[in-house]
């Protein structure tokens, strides 16, 4: 499933479009940056409630093309600017991390 499709069915606000046609191959959820650095697989989306510049650093280094910021948090301007320059999509949604995970799993996206 593509970034565009995921943003479509989850709703929320696309703060950075990234590459909407890019296929997402997996998913990971977590707020500990070192955990994501160690465990995320390239090409996965990342669900978190962290919303600061280092989120972009981790996404760039691990090649995570979609960041979903959950629980109504929003990316600050410096984060969206960095993501825009790196072609990373940012979606902020009102749903909790759990709800986002459940919805993605229901639609067939496996971790």
């Amino acid at each position: 499933m593509t970034i565009g499709e995921i943003c479509g069915f989850l709703g929320g606000e696309v703060q950075c479009t990234g590459d909407p046609g890019r296929e997402i191959t997996g998913a990971i959820a977590g707020d500990l940056l070192s955990f994501i650095m160690g465990a995320a697989k390239e090409g996965s989306l990342w669900i978190t409630i962290q919303a600061h510049l280092n989120v972009a650093a981790v996404a760039v280094l691990k090649d995570l093309p979609l960041i979903i910021i959950a629980s109504g948090r929003r990316a600050p301007d410096d984060l969206t600017e960095r993501c825009a320059s790196e072609n990373i999509a940012v979606l902020s949604v009102p749903q909790s991390m759990y709800e986002v995970c459940a919805e993605l799993a229901r639609r067939g996206l496996n971790g």
Binding site: H52, L53, N54, A57, V58, V60, L61, K62
Partner: peptide, 30 residues
């Protein structure tokens, strides 16, 4: 905290430019 990652990204991009495999680039980036 906010500038962290810039140096790592630079190192990773340099390795990429030198044609180093992406799995090695990722390990070095981490």
């Amino acid at each position: 905290f906010m500038v962290a990652g810039a140096a790592s990204n630079n190192i990773k991009n340099t390795l990429k430019m030198l044609g180093i495999s992406s799995s090695v680039c990722t390990r070095v980036a981490i």
